[in-house]
Computed example of a mutant assay.
Amino acid sequence: MNIEELSAFIADVNSQPKNHTGYCGSDRKEIQKTLEEDFSDLELEDSFIVISENKQLIAALGFDVDRKKQSAEIWGPFILNSDHWTEQTSMLWNEFMKKTESKKIDTYFAFYHEENKKGIRWMESLNAKETGKHQILVSKTEVTNGEILEEISPPFYEEVIKLHNELFPETYLTGADMISNLSEEKRLLIIPDGGQSIQGYVYLEGDSVFQEGNLEFIAVEREHQKKGLGKKLVQAGLTYLYENMNVLRFLYV
């Protein structure tokens, strides 16, 4: 499978709101980097099902598989000709089901733009459960006035995991997963509350190569809500991304 060709195809189709899948973005180079370095526990040939015509991609459906959780995030369907959307989506889905019969994938997640009516209807036909709606806020402002917060350390792990699982019980990332994911590009900042307790946290991801960052989760303990801590966490997260990760464009989901 040609990763460059696949990345360009996804970027082109996914740039249109009516076809947009939220997991993968629409920047060709960024999509290619993800496919090469951080996509699925299966080989790419097993994770993506494609249809070609005259040696050109016309349809693709991908699955970012987590074998430990027995789950997968759905990329697509990316269909060039909308007249064949239903037929080709069915072909792609059925082919993946046949290839992964022994993989024990129990749960599938999808994340579609509200204008992607075909994707939403397809999920409904599979009896998928809608767990929420999201707004994505974009800022290109160089925010540098946020307070410097403490990075999480082991004594606070339990409190953060407990708060995260309480406030986000059905999200794609558990509290334990969030902690285990921490790296140079994935950070968690906290507001301590004395001892080993916290008032809140912000979990962020930054990509210095593409100069883009996400504020993935922001949480405040119920007893500390309505005190301006949410704003404080947002400002601190954006400041951290700008000053420490060379990020110029921020997304808050």
Score class of each variant (00 low, 15 high):
166 E>R: 07
111 F>C: 04
22 G>N: 14
174 T>L: 11
172 Y>Q: 01
70 Q>Y: 01
139 S>V: 05
228 G>V: 00
224 H>A: 08
242 Y>F: 10
198 I>D: 02
65 V>C: 06
218 I>K: 02
50 V>Q: 06
203 Y>A: 05
101 E>F: 03
27 D>M: 01
3 I>V: 13
18 K>L: 04
159 E>P: 00
78 F>K: 03
122 W>T: 13
40 S>V: 10
61 L>I: 05
170 E>Q: 10
179 I>F: 10
153 S>F: 15
248 L>D: 07
223 E>C: 02
116 N>E: 14
242 Y>T: 10
207 D>V: 06
10 I>Y: 05
119 G>M: 13
201 Y>T: 01
188 L>N: 09
240 Y>V: 08
239 T>F: 08
81 N>L: 07
253 V>D: 08
83 D>H: 06
250 F>L: 02
133 K>A: 06
205 E>A: 05
162 K>I: 05
157 Y>F: 12
200 G>S: 13
137 L>E: 09
142 E>D: 07
191 I>T: 10
179 I>A: 13
222 R>N: 15
89 T>D: 04
99 K>Q: 12
101 E>T: 07
210 F>T: 00
221 E>H: 13
16 Q>D: 13
102 S>G: 00
229 L>T: 14
48 F>D: 03
209 V>T: 15
32 Q>C: 14
245 M>T: 09
48 F>N: 03
109 F>V: 02
47 S>P: 08
33 K>D: 06
1 M>A: 14
139 S>W: 02
37 E>D: 12
24 C>I: 13
54 N>L: 05
32 Q>V: 12
137 L>G: 08
34 T>A: 05
57 L>R: 05
179 I>Q: 12
218 I>S: 02
80 L>K: 04
41 D>W: 01
107 T>S: 09
195 G>S: 04
110 A>W: 00
232 K>E: 08
8 A>N: 11
198 I>A: 01
108 Y>S: 00
49 I>T: 14
88 Q>S: 12
71 S>N: 06
18 K>A: 11
159 E>H: 01
114 E>D: 13
143 V>D: 03
46 D>S: 07
145 N>D: 12
149 L>I: 04
242 Y>N: 09
193 D>R: 04
218 I>G: 01
29 K>A: 07
25 G>C: 04
17 P>M: 11
19 N>E: 05
249 R>Q: 13
154 P>H: 01
192 P>Q: 00
241 L>K: 08
169 P>C: 14
145 N>G: 11
242 Y>G: 07
21 T>R: 06
166 E>I: 04
95 E>G: 06
219 A>M: 09
71 S>A: 10
